[in-house]
């Protein structure tokens, strides 16, 4: 079943002057059709200003479509009566962990969401414990968020979303401000949630390496979906991606360069292991 479905989705940012006359219209999303099956790990790529974050805000009903329709778990996001249900179904994690943490103790921060929706106290504690465990932060439950690293803070933010028991989480460049270890921690936590708890993941990122294990990739440019497919398919189009101001993982780029130099390695190599196997094979047949 599809948990998210967009049909001819359009979003326009309209700027008005003091009298309310339209000054300018900027189309951030321009006729997007998209379907996400429940339990999938989806990645959305695109340069700054391509419309990715606007799309993310639609999934959480933070924005309402100008045209077209978006359904989240069968609910139309333009239906004001269902906004809270939609937000419970699709949780959101933003770029800067410091802007998302509000309490002075980790476990209170994670419990904030369910507490606000009237979940019974015992159930809250259970959820807090479960979600902190699922992101590997349980032993920090009594710590102050101020003294955590960026990766740890971001995992607390993810736990806070998980405590709402969403079917789907949307992460908008969750690793942009983190160091390599922090990035790895967050990505591992997200893949675990996807694999073990079956949560649908929509990951928006600029790091091509993070996308390699996704089930499906969408590439956006000027508000439109310009490429889509499995990571291997998308990343074999090195030149097209570059036209969209994007990149490929470093290993994929090296394989691409080797191909251009005349070495017969396959297209769409994603990992070190794959390239090593290819090279060892070629080396063996050379002898």
């Amino acid at each position: 079943m599809n948990i998210i479905k967009a049909s001819k989705l359009v979003h326009e940012y309209i700027r008005r002057d003091e009298e309310g006359n339209v000054e300018s219209i900027q189309t951030a999303i321009d006729g997007v059709d998209l379907e996400v099956a429940a339990g999938d790990f989806i990645a959305v790529l695109g340069h700054n200003g391509s419309g990715k974050s606007t799309l993310a805000k639609h999934i959480n009903a933070l924005l309402e479509p100008s045209e077209g329709t978006l359904w989240v778990d069968g609910m139309d996001t333009s239906d004001p009566e269902r906004i809270y249900e939609i937000r419970r179904a699709a949780g959101m994690v933003f770029q800067n962990p410091d802007n998302q943490i509000i309490a002075s103790v980790v476990e209170e921060d994670v419990g904030f969401g369910p507490e606000n929706t009237g979940v019974p106290t015992e159930e809250i504690w259970k959820r807090v414990e479960d979600s902190l465990r699922s992101v590997g932060m349980l032993k920090y439950r009594h710590h102050s968020p101020n003294r955590l690293s960026g990766g740890q803070k971001q995992r607390v933010a993810i736990a806070g979303v998980m405590a709402m028991e969403p079917k789907c989480i949307v992460l908008d460049e969750p690793t942009a401000m983190l160091d390599p270890v922090g990035r790895k921690e967050v990505l591992c936590a997200v893949s675990e949630l996807n694999r073990k708890k079956g949560v649908t993941v929509i990951l928006i990122t600029h790091y091509m390496e993070e996308v390699v294990n996704a089930d499906y990739v969408y590439v956006m440019d000027q508000g439109k979906i310009v490429m889509q497919g499995k990571p291997r398919e998308v990343f074999s189009e090195v030149e097209t991606l570059k036209e969209h101001r994007l990149d490929v993982p470093q290993i994929t780029l090296l394989a691409h360069e080797l191909r251009k130099a005349g070495l017969p390695v396959s297209k769409g190599i994603l990992t070190r292991e794959e390239l090593e196997q290819e090279l060892m094979g070629l080396y063996g047949s050379k002898k």
Partner: peptide, 9 residues
């Protein structure tokens, strides 16, 4: 380059 897309970076 934090937060920039690959081309911007």
């Amino acid at each position: 380059t934090a937060g920039l897309d690959p081309k911007g970076r």
